[in-house]
């Protein structure tokens, strides 16, 4: 494809992708010590009691930013570290704190908050970037950045395994697929947003905004069921929320083992079924996207443009 659009010029999409990858890598590592802390919850009465030790110096983590941003292997390693450090932190919690990991809460809460906001902004910004690009490759790059940021958010939700899977599958496979397809059809739209039907678009966006507002009002007020936080932690103190620490057989909450447990016990059948789905998807994709050849049309002698052409379409 010799499309002038993909002439190697560094468009804004790729820049943002690179930047976001770098930031992700660095900050995920920075979060790692924070992993042992509390889940970001609402227990405001705990906040006032916090005045804890500092996080590790961010300088240690910045050395990793030199790496190129497109091989997100960092988080994977981090997760191993995280596990260890998380466990370690749990056990090295300061005894003078009644609540495990509570000393981390203030700085972790503010730093977690800052991180959260940063990556939330990246998510939102990246997604807006995606839907406003005329250039498809730029959109794909923005998508990748968004996925990285989403992976970070997953990590903040203590879903490390899913974060890794997110990057692997989404950013690593699906977006690659998109790139391949874009290379096949590289026709950008003349204009991304058409002014025709503007009123309709405005109405729809208004309805969407209303829906989202209602949704947010509900979601914002969602409170956890009392006692739900306690099921995770192994501490005996049932009144305080704890970091999601060990589960019964010693693995972390959110780890591969945990997911595996759930996947191969409760969700075994969907797991197997999904493999079938993937198979069907592959077959279907091949069948649909395969070019169908048409043999040349034979017109018998003397019949002008006769319709009696034999078309044997190989199916």
């Amino acid at each position: 494809m010799t499309d002038p659009q993909y002439s190697g010029r560094c468009g804004p999409g790729r820049f943002i992708t690179a930047l976001s990858a770098a930031i992700v890598v660095s900050l995920v590592g920075w979060i790692a010590p924070a992993h042992g802390s509390n889940a970001p919850t609402l227990d405001s009465d705990l906040i006032e009691a916090q005045n804890q030790r500092e996080l590790k110096a961010p300088g240690d983590q910045t050395s990793r930013t030199a790496r190129r941003g497109d091989q997100p292997s960092g988080p994977m390693q981090e997760s191993g570290d995280l596990r260890a450090s998380g466990a370690g932190l749990d056990q090295t919690g300061s005894p003078r704190d009644r609540n495990v990991g509570q000393r981390k809460l203030s700085e972790t809460s503010s730093s977690v908050a800052a991180l959260f906001w940063l990556f939330a902004l990246m998510v939102v910004g990246g997604s807006i970037f995606v839907i406003t690009r005329r250039n498809l490759i730029s959109a794909v790059m923005g998508m990748v950045g968004t996925f990285f940021a989403i992976a970070v958010v997953y990590a903040m939700l203590y879903a490390h395994f899913l974060a890794a899977i997110q990057v692997l599958v989404y950013a690593g496979a699906i977006m690659v697929l998109f790139v391949f397809v874009i290379m096949i059809l590289n026709k950008p739209e003349a204009e991304p947003w058409s002014a025709s039907g503007l009123l309709g678009k405005v109405v729809v966006l208004g309805a969407l905004a209303y829906l989202l507002a209602r949704l947010f009002m509900v979601l914002w007020g969602v409170e956890p069921l009392p006692g739900s936080l306690l099921a995770i932690s192994a501490t005996s103190d049932t009144t305080t929320p704890a970091a999601p620490g060990a589960i019964v057989d010693g693995a972390d909450w959110g780890s591969t083992r945990g997911v595996g447990r759930a996947l191969f016990t409760s969700y075994l059948f969907p797991f197997e079924a999904v493999s079938l789905v993937l198979l069907i998807a592959v077959v279907g994709a091949v069948a649909v996207a395969r070019p169908h050849e048409r043999p040349p049309v034979h017109i018998p002698e003397g019949v002008p443009g006769g319709p009696k052409s034999r078309q044997s379409s190989r199916s």
Partner: peptide, 27 residues
Amino acid sequence: MHGDMRGHALAFIVIAVAAAEAAVGLA
């Protein structure tokens, strides 16, 4: 929120299905 790992499994399945759907859709 609920401390339930099964949600992670569900998310995993969702990712897999999304991948399949993307493949077929792109085809």
